[in-house]
């Protein structure tokens, strides 16, 4: 059974294996297919039209499935690998071990945002950016400049306290847990972390930065924590909603799974701690 661990507690060997598996997916071309899929949804999901991956109730189950696909791809390279998560409310500075050269590498240089160390630095030749929105082919970051502070534990807690999963109009204008976690409203959790990292993480092709997976693995964990805290609250809406994925409706691009099928993460993995 896959156990997703806090990135801060990974051993040197676990980090090495995770990095090697990611690099192998990149080398084989499988990695870039994930970036392409994400960008297609992010530009296709609109507040007044069909919306599946973002700005909608299915933001959480869609990313849960997307991460499962990626984790299975990693495991096809190395069965011992699981997706780690980044608790950005705890490891909240550019000095966190997450950004060390033996893991994801650090922030970009000021001249052009280019990441200069770690296994994903352009100079290694192992991390070309092929799916992109501009001409730059190197991984960029600007940790803590787009926005100064990552969300605090108190801010996370204030969102976990929201008892209703989601509300009409089921988009970026909604009240409720999902949209506050996604960040279009309120203290802003998920969106703000993308902006804090900067570089490609702030764009539609954000999975170009491997921290994308660690960020979303933590967003996914917060969904699980919310479920435990509000056992009487379920996924909404439950039927008949135009342009929105209802609880038992199948999700693109897989067309074989509904949000209902993805509510219980323990069918696929567990976490190291609650």
């Amino acid at each position: 059974m896959t156990v997703r661990k806090n990135q801060a507690s990974l051993t040197a060997d676990e980090k090495r294996r995770f990095v090697a598996a990611v690099l192998e997916l990149k080398r084989s071309g499988r990695y870039d297919a994930f970036v392409t899929t994400h960008n297609a949804f992010i530009v296709g999901d609109t507040d007044n039209g069909e919306r599946t991956g973002h700005r909608s109730p299915s933001f959480l189950p869609w990313h849960r499935r997307f991460l499962l696909e990626f984790e299975r791809a990693l495991q096809s390279v190395d069965p011992s690998v699981a997706l780690p998560y980044w608790n950005w409310s705890a490891d909240r500075s550019a000095r966190a071990s997450l950004w060390a050269p033996d893991f994801l590498g650090g922030t970009g240089r000021s001249l052009d945002g280019r990441v200069m160390d770690g296994p994903f630095a352009a100079a290694t030749g192992n991390w070309p950016l092929n799916v992109r929105v501009d001409g730059r082919t190197y991984l960029r970051r600007s940790l803590g400049t787009g926005v100064r502070e990552l969300p605090t534990p108190a801010e996370v807690d204030s969102v976990l306290a929201m008892a209703t999963y989601d509300m009409a109009p089921w988009n970026s204008g909604s009240d409720g847990f999902r949209n506050h976690l996604e960040g279009w409203r309120g203290v802003n959790l998920h969106n703000r972390v993308h902006v804090w990292v900067g570089g490609q993480m702030a764009t539609g092709v954000s999975p170009n930065d491997p921290v994308f997976w660690l960020h979303h693995a933590y967003i996914d964990k917060l969904w699980a924590q919310w479920q435990r805290r509000h056992p009487a609250s379920g996924y909404l809406p439950t039927g008949g909603t135009p342009d929105v994925v209802d609880r038992d409706e199948r999700m693109k691009p897989w067309n074989d799974t509904s949000p209902a099928d993805l509510l219980d993460h323990t069918a696929h993995y567990t976490f190291d701690t609650d």
Partner: peptide
């Protein structure tokens, strides 16, 4: 440049997708 309007009237683009 791919841009998108949010429900509250704010805007984002594909190179700044999470910051209205």
């Amino acid at each position: 440049l791919h841009v998108m309007r949010n429900a509250d009237g704010t805007w984002i683009s594909v190179v700044s997708h999470y910051a209205p």
